[in-house]
């Protein structure tokens, strides 16, 4: 990845502010956030809880509305981008409908977006293959493990042609071993689909392993304290995590997190 200004910005935030009015007074969830995400980037947002990383992702997705500043997605407002179905969103929980089969769950966005029956079937088969769940189309969610359910929910977000994939701690509830495998799979998927990915996590190794850029955030008010360009190559086997480069990036992330934390404690 280069910093060349020629690469088109997909997501651009300028002076973004978001204040939630709560019973205990206003909560500054985001303060003066500036960030540009370019096409094909894999950007991770890392920080302690309450740092606004999920809120920022939700602002991009038009699920929250900023109280100040601007944000554009594909050059549009988030609302226009949502209506143009510019992104797929993967939540913390798989959130599959228990009354639909895995295939039926993946078909859900396709039904809403008005794809033909034939195309629905073709796309479901394709994304199931992409997340290595071929043959599970007729199973119900409860028949699958947690990791498989989360893969199905990623397939659901990939089923329609959105260039942006927003993922909110998608592997947070999974154990380390499953998480490693899914991280590897996600990287492979990113290579094959060339999507732009925004990824919220609170795991340093996960952020460093996956991302081309790591955005370190800190809480109260939620703000960006550091943006780290990863020097790691795009091709990343799992054992890259033992290389000095990896450890150095991880160290810088940890430093950034400590700094952000130190200021308020």
């Amino acid at each position: 990845m280069s910093d060349a200004p020629t690469t088109t910005p997909v997501i651009e935030a300028r002076g973004l502010d978001l204040v939630f009015e709560t019973a205990d007074g206003p909560v500054h969830a985001l303060k003066d956030v500036d960030l540009t995400i370019r096409k094909g980037d894999f950007v991770s947002f890392i920080g302690p809880s309450g740092c606004g990383k999920t809120t920022f992702l939700r602002v991009i997705a038009d699920l929250e509305h900023p109280t100040g500043g601007t944000v554009t997605v594909n050059g549009m407002t988030p609302e226009a981008a949502r209506k143009a179905r510019a992104y797929g969103y993967v939540f913390q929980a798989a959130g599959l409908y228990p009354w639909r089969t895995i295939g039926g769950n993946i078909r859900l966005p396709l039904e809403i977006m008005g794809y033909s029956r034939a195309e629905q079937a073709e796309r479901v088969a394709r994304v199931l293959e992409l997340v290595e769940l071929s043959g599970f189309a007729k199973k119900y969610p409860w028949q699958l493990s947690g990791g498989m359910q989360q893969r199905a929910s990623i397939a659901r977000a990939l089923a329609f042609d959105a260039d942006i994939l927003l993922m909110d701690e998608p592997f947070g509830a999974l154990d380390e071993i499953v998480r490693d495998r899914l991280n590897e799979e996600l990287l492979r998927l990113w290579h094959r689909t060339e999507k732009t990915i925004g990824f919220v996590t609170h795991s340093i190794p996960e952020a460093v392993y996956l991302s081309t850029r790591i955005v370190v955030m800190s809480p109260r008010p939620g703000r960006i304290t550091d943006v780290i360009e990863s020097p790691l190559p795009r091709e990343r086997p799992l054992d890259i995590r033992d290389t000095p480069e990896f450890i150095e990036v991880a160290h810088r992330v940890r430093e950034g997190l400590r700094e952000g934390h130190g200021r308020e404690e």
Binding site: L63, R82, F91, A93, G95, Y97, P109, I112
Partner: peptide
């Protein structure tokens, strides 16, 4: 809320 948000990201209508 999460399931409702999901449908919102699909820009699903009220009847849908």
């Amino acid at each position: 809320a999460m399931q409702l948000d999901l449908l919102r990201t699909y820009n699903a209508s009220g009847p849908e």
